[in-house]
Design a protein around this nucleic acid. Structure first.
Lengths: 330, 330
DNA sequence: AGACCCGATTTGAACGTTCAACACCATCTC
DNA sequence: GAGATGGTGTTGAACGTTCAAATCGGGTCT
C-alpha cells in the first residue's frame, strides 16, 4: 500500500537498513555484489527516499523560499516569471526546490521568512526587487538566515548578490547606435533615485561622453513613470524639440513600446532600443537589452548554497543586446 | 543556539512534551492555568513547531506542487503570475505552501509529480493550462495522486476542476457592445480545436444569435495565431471588407492590442474588447473580460484539500467585463 | 469503605532516515 | 601466533512531533 521504506528494501534484498542507505549515499562502501542486489530491490519496489525523513534527520529542508508578489510594477514584465523558472531549474540541478510564500511588504517578508526558517521549512531565501534602501538584507543577516539577492542596494553590499551590469547594458545600446551613425541619442528612464534606473542612465551618459556626444544633450535625458503612455508622451516631447534625437535608449521595454507607438503614429524616423527583451519586444520588432536570467538563476543558487565563506560577495553578469528592426533600419 | 523544541518549552513551563503539544493542538484538554504557563514559555522562547517533524509524523507535507513553465504561450499574460500568487495566498489560508518544479512536457510533469509525491514532498498538485486531450488527469488519477485542474478537457471531467465561464465572458462582451448600439460585431480567436478558444467563440456566436445578428456574419469570424502582429493583420482584413464591423471581440488581450494598433494607425472607428484584463489592457485603455483569479485560487485549493468525496467535481466561475475607453466611446 | 469515573497530565512508541559505534572475518605484519 | 588493519555489514540512537495508552488525584455513587 504505502510507499516502500528502506526497511522494505532491506528485507527484500536480505540486508540491513543501513546497507540500503549506503548503496544510495556511499556506494563505495558496499560490495558490488551486494550493491546490485540492493539496487534491484530498489528498482523492483520503486523505492524513493522520503525527503521529509531526510530533512528531519539532516536538519536541512532542501527548500528555498521565494516571495511571490501580487503584481510586479514592470507591466510587460515576464522577468518575474523567467527568474522563477530559472531558479526552479537551477534549484533542481542542486536538488533543491522553491517554496513560494506571500507577504504584504518587505518587513512582513522578513517576518515570514523567519517563521518558515524557524519551522525548518526553508534553508534560505532568494530576494528579488532590491531597492536602494532595502531593509531585507540587514534583517535577514541579523537573523542569520542564508540568502542571496538579485540586485544591489545603493551601498556596497556585503552579502551574496547577483546583478545584471545595467550600466554596460545601456552603454552597449549606445555603442550600437553610434556605430549606426547616430549622433543625438536620447535616454528615457525611471525617475532618479531608483538604483536600477540610475545605473542605466549612467551607462548611457558615459557611453555618450566617450564619443564626445554629451554636449548639448540636456534635453535628451528624460525621466518618468514606467508606463506605455508615458513613453509615448516623452517621445512626442523629444520629437517636438527643435533638435530632435535620431535614436532613443529606453530603460524598459514598456517605455520603448510607448516610443514606438508615437513613432509609428507620426511616421517619424527614430531608432529605439529597449531593455529586458520582453516577449512584447519580439512582437514589436524592438531591439532590446536582454538579461541573462538563466545565468542569474544559477548564480543565485550557487551563491546561496555555496560554501558561503571565501566566495566573492557579489557577481555582475553581462547583458546582451538583441538587435531587431527598431534600431537596425538605415 | 538551535531553535527551541517542544522539549525546551516543556522544561521551561515545568510540564511534559505532550502538554505543550496539547496546548497547540487541543487547548481544551489543558487546564487554563497550565495553558497560560505554557503559552508564556512558547512566547518567551519564540517556539515554532518544526514543520518537517510534523510532516513526518502526520505523513502529510502540507505542500502543493506546481509546474512552472519556461514561458507561457500567452505573451502579454500575467495570468500565470496572478494565478501563482492567488494560489500561494489561498494556500496560506489553508496552511499549505506551493512547491515549484519544472518539467519538459506533460508526460515528464506526471513523472516528476509522482516522484515528489512518493518522496513525501507534496500532497497533491495543481494543473494549469489543461488541453483538450490532456494526458495529465488520467495519469495522476491512475497514480492516485490528488490534484485539481484549472480548465477542462473536451470531455466531461470527473476530477476536481475549476474553470472560468469563457462562454459567458465573450457573451457579456457582445451584450455590452449591443447595448452600445453595435450591430456588426466581429470575433478574433484561436484556431479551432483549442478548447478555451472554442468556448470563447461559442459565447460570441450564441450572443449574436440571441439578438438575431448572426446572419451574414461569416466574414466576421476570424481565427489565427495569438500574437499582436496577427491581431493587427486580422483587423486590417476586417476593415477592408465592404461591410466592416463596428466592434470586435478578441479572445485575448494580445489580439485586441493588435487590433488597437491598426485602429489607431488608420484612425478607424472600431470598438474593441479583449480578454484576460492584462496590465497592458489597462495601459491601452482596452476593455477586457477579467478572470476572477483570486477566486480561482481559493476554489482550486478548496477542491484539492477538501474532503474529496461528495463535493461537486467541478466549478465554473463567472468572469467580469471591465469597460474602458476602447469600447465606451460613442 | 470500596468501586468507579473523569479530567489532567505523563510516558512510550512511531513516522523514515542517517550518523556513530561496533561486530565480524580475512589478511597482513612482526 | 598474537596483534594490527581494513573492508563489509550490523545495531543503536537521534532528529521533533503527535497518537495511543498509562498514570495520578480527586470526586461521586452505592
Amino acid at each position: 500500500m504505502h510507499p516502500p521504506t528502506v526497511e522494505d528494501v532491506a528485507r527484500a534484498a536480505g540486508v540491513s537498513r543501513q546497507t540500503v542507505s549506503n548503496v544510495l549515499n556511499a556506494p563505495q562502501r558496499v560490495r558490488p555484489e551486494t550493491r546490485q542486489r540492493v539496487e534491484a530491490a530498489i528498482e523492483q519496489l520503486g523505492y524513493r527516499p522520503n525527503r521529509v525523513a531526510q530533512s528531519l534527520r539532516a536538519a536541512t529542508s532542501r527548500m528555498i523560499g521565494y516571495r511571490i508578489e501580487p503584481m510586479h510594477p514592470h507591466a510587460l514584465g515576464s522577468m518575474h516569471d523567467r527568474l522563477l523558472h530559472a531558479l526552479a531549474e537551477a534549484g533542481r540541478a542542486a536538488d533543491h526546490h522553491l517554496l513560494l510564500f506571500t507577504a504584504d511588504d518587505p518587513g512582513d517578508e522578513v517576518a515570514n521568512v523567519d517563521a518558515l526558517h524557524r519551522a525548518g521549512a526553508i534553508d534560505g531565501v532568494v530576494l528579488y526587487g532590491i531597492q536602494s534602501a532595502d531593509p531585507r538584507p540587514a534583517g535577514l543577516r541579523h537573523l542569520r538566515i542564508p540568502f542571496a539577492a538579485f540586485g544591489r542596494t545603493g551601498a556596497d553590499d556585503a552579502h551574496p548578490w547577483v546583478d545584471i551590469d545595467n550600466t554596460a547594458g545601456t552603454a552597449a545600446a549606445v555603442e550600437h547606435l553610434v556605430t549606426r551613425g547616430h549622433r543625438r541619442i536620447a535616454f528615457l528612464g525611471y525617475p532618479e533615485g531608483v538604483a536600477v534606473g540610475d545605473r542605466r542612465a549612467d551607462g548611457w551618459r558615459t557611453a555618450l561622453d566617450k564619443h564626445g556626444l554629451l554636449d548639448g544633450s540636456r534635453h535628451l535625458d528624460l525621466r518618468g513613470e514606467d508606463s506605455l503612455a508615458n513613453g509615448a508622451r516623452l517621445a512626442e516631447a523629444l520629437l517636438d524639440h527643435h533638435t530632435p534625437p535620431t535614436a532613443v535608449v529606453a530603460a524598459t521595454d514598456t517605455l520603448a513600446a510607448g516610443v514606438l507607438r508615437t513613432v509609428r503614429q507620426r511616421h517619424a524616423r527614430l531608432a529605439v532600443v529597449g531593455f529586458d527583451d520582453t516577449p512584447t519586444a519580439g512582437a514589436l520588432d524592438l531591439s532590446s537589452v536582454r538579461q541573462p536570467i538563466e545565468a542569474v538563476g544559477h548564480a543565485m543558487i550557487r551563491a546561496l548554497l555555496g560554501p558561503g565563506g571565501n566566495e566573492p560577495a557579489g557577481q555582475l553578469l553581462a547583458p546582451e543586446l538583441i538587435v531587431r528592426a527598431s534600431s537596425a533600419l538605415p
